[in-house]
Amino acid sequence: MSESLHLVCPHCQAINRVPAERLSHAPNCGQCHQPLFTGHPVELDESTLERHIAHTDIPLLVDFWAPWCGPCKMMAPQFAQAASLLEPGLRLGKVDTEAHPAPGNRYGIRSIPTLVLFQNGREVARQAGAMGAQEIVRWVRSRVS
């Protein structure tokens, strides 16, 4: 019997069970029928961030950023490119700390951009400062078990 993974839909937030070997076959959400992976980071707020952390069995990389932050703006296309390189083995999300300050406070974000890697419902690594797409990919791959 194959292992099933839980994935939160980036569109409707439904929790889906997907056989691990089907991750690379472009699975769709069982509820809204949208793709579970889009090749782009998912915009998250306080409740959707917590839902993804608690109910997604693949690692989650979150970019804590703000619209007024120059380095954040410079890194945004790099983070999006990293999403296309790392999915479906990893979910990438973004939290706008200006619009949603509570998650930044909860996770002790002191500078932006800050990348936080979650696995099995807990933080496993963090990195402050802007990075290029390949740097992000290397950093994540060196920390995911």
Rank of each mutant, 00 (worst) to 15 (best):
C32Y: 05
P67L: 07
G39I: 10
H33L: 14
N16E: 14
H40P: 00
R22T: 10
S84I: 03
R51F: 06
D57W: 10
G132S: 04
P113T: 03
A20I: 11
V144L: 01
P101A: 09
L92F: 07
N28F: 03
M74G: 01
S84Y: 04
P103W: 05
T114I: 02
A76Y: 03
G129V: 01
G93W: 14
H40I: 06
Q13Y: 11
P71W: 01
N105S: 10
A125E: 08
I15H: 08
L117F: 05
E3L: 15
Q127H: 05
P41V: 08
R106L: 09
I58L: 13
T114F: 03
V95T: 10
S84G: 15
G30V: 02
C12L: 06
S2Y: 11
N28E: 11
E87L: 05
K94A: 14
C12F: 08
L5N: 13
E21A: 13
G104V: 00
V62M: 07
V137I: 04
E87W: 07
A80V: 04
S47N: 14
E21P: 11
C29Y: 04
L60A: 07
I109F: 04
H100T: 10
L92I: 08
N16H: 13
V124I: 15
G132T: 05
R22E: 11
F37Y: 14
N28C: 06
Q81R: 15
P101I: 08
R17N: 15
L44V: 09
D63K: 02
E21D: 13
G30Y: 00
R138P: 00
S2F: 11
P88A: 07
A54V: 08
L86T: 04
P19A: 14
A82T: 06
L92Q: 07
V140W: 01
T114H: 01
F64T: 06
Y107C: 06
A133W: 03
F64A: 06
Q34W: 04
H11T: 15
D45Y: 11
F64L: 08
W65N: 07
V116S: 07
G70C: 00
P67E: 15
N16I: 12
H11V: 14
E50C: 03
R17F: 10
R91C: 10
L49T: 09
T38M: 13
C12M: 06
R22K: 14
P67S: 13
I15K: 10
A66F: 07
A128T: 13
M75K: 00
L90H: 03
W68T: 12
G104F: 02
M75H: 00
E135S: 00
L117S: 03
A128L: 02
V18S: 14
P41R: 05
Q34G: 03
V116G: 05
A130K: 02
R91I: 15
G129L: 03
V95Q: 12
V95G: 11
H25E: 14
E21H: 15
S4Y: 11
S145F: 04
L90W: 03
T38F: 11
R110T: 05
A99C: 08
